[in-house]
Each structure stands twice: as C-alpha cells, then as structure tokens.
Amino acid sequence: MSNDHLNTHTQQGEYIPETYIPHTVSHGTKELWRTFWLLAFVTVIDFAIYFMAPAGMPRNIVFIALGIFKAVLIVGIFMHMKFETSFLRWMIVLPAIIFLSYFVWLLMLEGDYVSISKYF
C-alpha cells in the first residue's frame, strides 16, 4: 500500500497523535460465539412470535424491544463498545439516543395527525 511508510516507524502503544495505535488484546472467542447464538436465538423468537401472537401494537412493541436488544449485543460485543472508554461510548451512543427518541416521537405524531385529518 502507498501509505505503508506512515506506519512503519510507529510502535504499537507509543503516543504520537494521528498515528497512535493502542495495544489491543484478544478477549477470546467464547463470548463472540455466545453472542452469535444469542442473536440467532432472538431471531428464532421473533419468528415464533410472528406466527403465534396476533398482529397489533403489543406484538410490535415486543419486536422493537427485541430489535433494540439485538442492537445492544451487536454494538456492545461485536463492535467492541463494551471495551472502549466511557468517554467514547457516551459520545457515540448519547447523540443517537437523543436524536432517535425525539425524532421518533415527533414523526409518529405527524403521521398520526395526517391520518386523522385525511381519513377521520
């Protein structure tokens, strides 16, 4: 690669801004496989609920809750967020939570209003 020379003189763990690479250690594969089986299991649960429970808001809320659970597993373990510093964790997660909850509330209200004013 053309930018090989940038990294050849940088030792892992040595602090030089912009080329600093922290020393990483393996946490083993056990937890990764466990997460994989858990994700697959939750998908099977999704599948079962879809055919067993009647369609409606309660079922939808269960699906969304399971989706958020899967998202936490993926971000926390697959994306290593669990092992990052809390500064990084909150810098990424907090804006997403604030933006999402506000925007979801706002646009559900809007969709509801359009429906009521057009069809009821």
Partner: peptide, 16 residues
C-alpha cells in the same frame, strides 16, 4: 434512522 422513521410516519399516515 431518518429513512426508517420517515417510513414509519408515512405508514402511520395511511391508517384509516
């Protein structure tokens, strides 16, 4: 999330 939330709002707006 903008795409998905927009989808949700449009789907909601077809109720009735």
């Amino acid at each position: 999330s903008s795409l998905l939330i927009g989808y949700g709002a449009i789907r909601f707006s077809y109720a009735g």
